[in-house]
Design a protein around this nucleic acid. Structure first.
Lengths: 342, 342
DNA sequence: TTGAAAGCGCTAACAG
DNA sequence: CTGTTAGCGCTTTCAA
């Protein structure tokens, strides 16, 4: 019941606590046999270091805060998997908080992380600018922050990791064009998210190139849930816009749009092809499965921690900006199959 | 940059640290004006207590460990939302770990939580019995544990929270029967999960009642992902089993089965109706949307923390077993709509 | 009502 | 190579 401390070991072995500490910390100033004796006793007595004591001493909390906008989709889950890959077995623990797409909640989470004295924060924003000042303040007060996926504007000099939204979007939209589609909608997500704009830019580039662009084809959604996509599709159709394909900001939006269309008896992809951008299991969980830009999410998580550990070790290190390479996956939502009855 | 400590306040005010501490901890042995003076100075200087120091003193870590089998589906996300609802603004922080449906990883996570000296653990098992001994050991060593959703066998006396799997399953299956279905498959999930068996029992009860039971209709899956459902469906069909409805253990399994059938040109629900059990957004994200037993997941998370806080406050308190009431939601996957062209 | 001092578990500077 | 001592930030006796 009572935890074994370094003192217990020292009493047991008739040594001083400092000697025990030295053995445990692999200090050079100790005789080999002594160290071994201590290590053995530690194991025997079931000694586990007390993190609070370590933390008090070092002034660090040995924990890393991860703040994500949501955990409804498997997106954040994948990121966390990457983070845990790197951190498991290390002294660091992971504290997770969700902002529920609400910048005020994000603010609370950030302040909470600071109070907990986390050694660093890894964050995926839910609004591009809302908490901009706070990010700067936290950085100034000495907590390193790494941004991934939805990052702040470039006037904030911080380490970042994401995929190249723009050029990948262009490629995906070109794929749609290559299948013969001419009226491609961009279901672009909210303008308050940087990536939505980036991906829209990539989309535009492709459409300009093939002289297919039309303002009516770009439609903003109020949020990122599948419900927002349904609303947007409704608006679009009521407005009388004709379209034969959709390029959506995320899997959730693509799915919302697809379900709305299926309900209205559209055939996918014959009447309307759908492509999305994300890389979560969701794209394979719907029918027909979605063509999508698959981001290397686990790797993104891993990279984010690595950038953070770098910053923790050397706070004055240069702020790196890592771009990962996504993969384009083509599935049934954009490629018709020859039909055959069951 | 440097954190403000209680000492800084004491120097600033020419008081002793103990007085400052008293003011901050709402001790009665302090003059009102002194307290106010201290509080004001604390605010002015931007004082934030150092959790590590508190923890070292109290021997507690003021953190709560949450261990979930997966975060691919929004299930755990909802639970975490409930947990954060109760805990936000409290002194407790939440440490999350995923077991990836692997009992060995679960074991590692449990030991990690113990090393971190969490004040308690909230856990959703990934295997009914694998780590049974370890649960008991951790409890014996003094860390309270609350189990939710997938709970251990009843010979482990611990607080638990879940919904009534069995009787709710019966009701849902009776719904399928009421729509005229006679050959209802139970896609039951792995037998190593208690709830799978419970739900199967509920299913059987309904089928016995209406004399519809047939051993061939019960099919176990190897795991809980949508891929396992596809495999199971394939096996079932190859075996030549005739069926007109499916009752699935979870949303993921229901979705996997549905997609497999849609691919094979079955009509849902006309050829095969599908009902599931879970309560995540997933059931609404597919087409047709799934009829499902919607569990109050946020509430489940809230209840779990409350049970835990109770145990933390009073370790000898009786182990409560809370059953929450789920809601049956009927959607298009079991109820055909009159068809009309777009 | 306040201050001085001890101590939570651990590390590290300083002696020996 | 090992022991003594101080101190991280805070709470809590014990005295005053």
């Amino acid at each position: 019941m009572k935890r074994v401390t370094i003192k217990d070991i020292s009493k047991h072995l008739l040594l001083s606590t400092s000697t025990v500490s030295r053995a445990l910390t692999d200090d050079k100033n100790i005789r080999k046999e002594t160290r071994e004796k201590v290590l053995e006793a530690a194991k025997e007595l079931g000694y586990k270091p007390n993190p609070s004591a370590l933390n008090l001493k070092s002034g660090k909390s040995n924990s890393i805060g991860v703040i994500v906008p949501e955990m409804i989709t498997p997106f954040s889950s994948k990121i966390l998997e990457g983070i845990q890959n790197v951190l498991s077995g290390s002294k660091f623990r992971v504290i997770v908080a969700q902002s529920n797409e609400n910048p005020e909640t994000e603010r609370t989470n950030l302040l909470m992380m600071e109070e907990f004295r986390v050694d660093g924060i890894i964050i995926n924003l839910c609004h591009e600018t809302y908490n901009h000042k706070l990010y700067q303040e936290i950085l100034d007060r000495g907590t390193p922050m790494i941004f991934f996926d939805r990052i702040p504007p470039s006037n904030l000099d911080v380490p970042k990791v994401l995929v190249n939204d723009q050029s990948t979007s262009t490629t995906m939209v070109e794929h749609l064009i290559s299948t013969g589609k001419k009226r491609i909608v961009n279901l672009m997500g909210p303008k308050t998210i940087r990536n939505a704009i980036q991906r829209a830019d990539g989309y535009k580039k492709a459409l300009y190139k093939y002289k297919l662009f039309d303002d009516d084809l770009v439609i903003e959604t109020e949020g990122t849930s599948f419900i927002h996509a349904k609303e947007a599709m409704k608006r679009l159709i009521e407005k009388g816009v004709v379209f034969d394909a959709i390029f959506a900001f995320t899997d959730s939006l693509a799915i919302g749009a697809m379900n709305y269309l299926l309900e209205k008896k559209y055939r996918i992809p014959e009447d309307v092809a759908i492509a999305s951008f994300s890389g979560t299991e969701l794209s394979q969980m719907v029918f027909p499965p979605l063509s999508t830009v698959e981001q290397p999410l686990v790797e993104m998580g891993e990279t984010a921690v690595e950038l953070l550990l770098e910053k923790i070790k050397n706070p004055t290190s240069k702020n790196r900006f890592v771009q990962l390479k996504p993969e384009l996956i083509f599935r049934r939502s954009t490629i018709a199959q020859q039909s055959h009855q069951k």
